[in-house]
Measured scan of single mutants.
Amino acid sequence: KLCLVCSDEASGCHYGVLTCGSCKVFFKRAVEGQHNYLCAGRNDCIIDKIRRKNCPACRYRKCLQAGMNLEARKTK
């Protein structure tokens, strides 16, 4: 099974979405830290295992598009 954000090996369902541990922690920190990420490109950066750290804005956008939600952990 692959992470729906970066296509690395998924470690489980986190915040409602099948993700790897790295994307799970990234999403939690992004939401709780209330980061205002900005993409230096055109908001279409490739997010994969190798390049997932290059653009936090696009990675966060991809987390949201996949359906990640901090509240999902509280309902399970």
Rank of each mutant, 00 (worst) to 15 (best):
E9K: 15
G12Y: 04
G41W: 11
R51K: 11
G41C: 12
D44A: 11
T19V: 11
E9P: 15
G67M: 02
I50T: 12
E9D: 11
F26V: 01
R59F: 03
V5T: 01
I46A: 14
D48Y: 05
E32R: 11
V31W: 08
K28L: 11
K74I: 14
H35N: 15
D8P: 01
V31F: 12
G67N: 04
C3Y: 01
L18E: 09
L70T: 10
A66Y: 11
C63S: 03
R59H: 13
C45Y: 02
K62H: 08
G21W: 09
I46N: 12
K62N: 10
A72S: 08
L2T: 15
D48W: 03
T75I: 09
D48L: 03
I47T: 06
L4S: 10
T75M: 12
L64M: 11
E71A: 05
N43I: 04
A57D: 05
Q65E: 08
L4Q: 14
C63K: 01
S11Y: 05
C6N: 01
V25L: 14
R61Q: 15
P56R: 07
R51L: 10
F27E: 00
L70M: 15
K76A: 14
K62T: 09
I46K: 15
G16S: 05
G33D: 15
C63E: 01
L38H: 14
R73G: 11
F27D: 00
G16I: 01
V25P: 02
A66R: 05
L70H: 13
Y60F: 12
I47W: 02
F26R: 01
K76E: 15
K24S: 15
C39L: 00
L4M: 12
C45L: 00
D48K: 03
C45I: 00
D48M: 02
F27Y: 12
G21D: 12
Q65C: 06
C58F: 00
V31A: 10
F27W: 08
F26N: 01
G33E: 09
C23S: 03
V31S: 14
K1A: 08
C6L: 00
A40I: 10
R59P: 01
P56H: 06
R52T: 06
A10N: 04
C13I: 15
K24L: 05
C58I: 01
G33M: 09
K53Y: 10
F26H: 03
R59Q: 04
T75H: 10
C55F: 00
R59Y: 07
I47N: 05
F26K: 00
N43F: 11
F27C: 03
T19E: 00
N69C: 15
Y37L: 12
R73W: 07
C55M: 00
K62M: 09
Y60C: 02
N69Y: 06
P56Y: 09
R73N: 05
I50G: 13
S22F: 14
K49Q: 10
N54E: 10
L64W: 10
V31M: 09
P56K: 06
D8H: 04
G16K: 04
K28N: 08
D8M: 04
K1T: 03
K53E: 15
S7L: 11
E9T: 15
L38N: 14
L18K: 07
G21M: 10
